[in-house]
Design a protein around this nucleic acid. Structure first.
Lengths: 193, 193
DNA sequence: CTATCGAACTTTAGATCTGAAGTCTTGAGG
DNA sequence: CCTCAAGACTTCAGATCTAAAGTTCGATAG
């Protein structure tokens, strides 16, 4: 079917045409192209990156069925995690999500138009603005959390309790190391281009 | 020093100015706001997400010192990993990076203008386009890899060889589970909004 | 050889983000 | 009071991405 024989000069990868390489293939390629590489380190890092990407795809699919985007979900999450009465300023939100204040202004515009949050001036200090979760926003967050936990439980299904604990601890140790080295939570997560 | 004194009243976090909560605070908040939550699962997932975010910030800082962006680095990576002669079509690149073909066209425009890649038509099939890494592009990738491996080695510094191996295995098992469930590598990694 | 369909890429319009400049409020000095 | 500096948010211009429409080439069927 796949019109084999296209002259295929050197196609070491069994995958006829260029599909995404498997993790194993990727690490092998790294070793071919870059000698000074610890394959063990690379396996951890590459698996981490791929896993996160897949998870984001999954979350995106779920939130989109709820009529919200992943970016909106992030904002809802930050507000809920701040605890009742679920209020934060645009500046705080921007710091927590790793965005510029300008981007937060735009997001809040959209989310307020959709009724997920309200925006009002702080009467005690009129420079500040207060973004507050609406009941509808909280409901959306709950719904998204229900779907997310199902996915996450499924993701970890093959791991025993001991393995889950171990994995959590190892990841937390790595996280601690980065957070100590990078105390400023800020820093755009995307590019810095 | 862990879990001492949970008695702290209602405002455990110095409410002074809302800074990003720690991982522990975040998980505690999740449990307050969403009863049906397995804290062990949440620790793994939250640590994973935070870790990835921090790593992206670090990579972004590094690549920006080289005069390229993280997005450009992704393209260089895909080309190098494809092996000599470091050529791929825009469509393949788009699939591997989880972008739309349109976005790839734009990226290639920019990267070709900077001399990181060349773009030419495939003479055997003039519908196709071939994107090829230039020597300069390969050099930039090498330089970025050198910086990245230093960072990654530092990140894993506190883990023994056994722990590294274990972590790699656990992550790979999770990855396998998602990739089996989501065979299509595609899917925008960002929003789907 | 010609018509047509499909594949691969590009173009266009609109969405969202960044960086810089602008607006408004507060607080410190004079 | 008045002025000015700093802080918090918004506005604006430009960058990059997505979705959809457009273009071009290749292959298949008369």
């Amino acid at each position: 079917m796949r019109a084999i024989l296209r002259g295929m000069p050197e196609t070491p990868s069994p995958s006829g045409s260029a599909s995404e390489p498997s993790l194993e293939e990727q690490i092998a390629a790294y070793q071919r192209e870059f000698r000074d590489l610890d394959p063990q380190v690379e396996q951890v890092v590459s698996a981490l990156q791929r896993l996160n990407r897949r998870m984001n795809v999954a979350y995106g699919r779920q939130t989109s069925t709820l009529g919200i985007s992943n970016t909106e979900w992030e904002v809802l999450k930050a507000l809920v995690l701040s605890g009742a009465p679920y209020r934060l300023g645009p500046g705080d939100l921007a710091k927590r999500l790793g965005l510029t204040p300008a981007a937060m202004t735009h997001r809040i515009d959209r989310m307020a138009a959709e009724g997920l949050v309200t925006r009002e001036r702080d009467e005690n200090n009129r420079v500040r603005v207060i973004v507050e979760l609406t009941d509808q926003g909280r409901e959306q967050w709950l719904e998204a959390m229900r779907m997310a936990t199902v996915f996450e439980e499924d993701l970890l299904q093959d791991l025993t309790t001991v393995e889950r604990h171990l994995l959590g601890e190892l990841l937390t140790r790595l996280l601690r190391r980065v957070e100590d080295a990078q105390p400023d939570a800020g820093g755009r997560l995307s590019d810095l281009g």
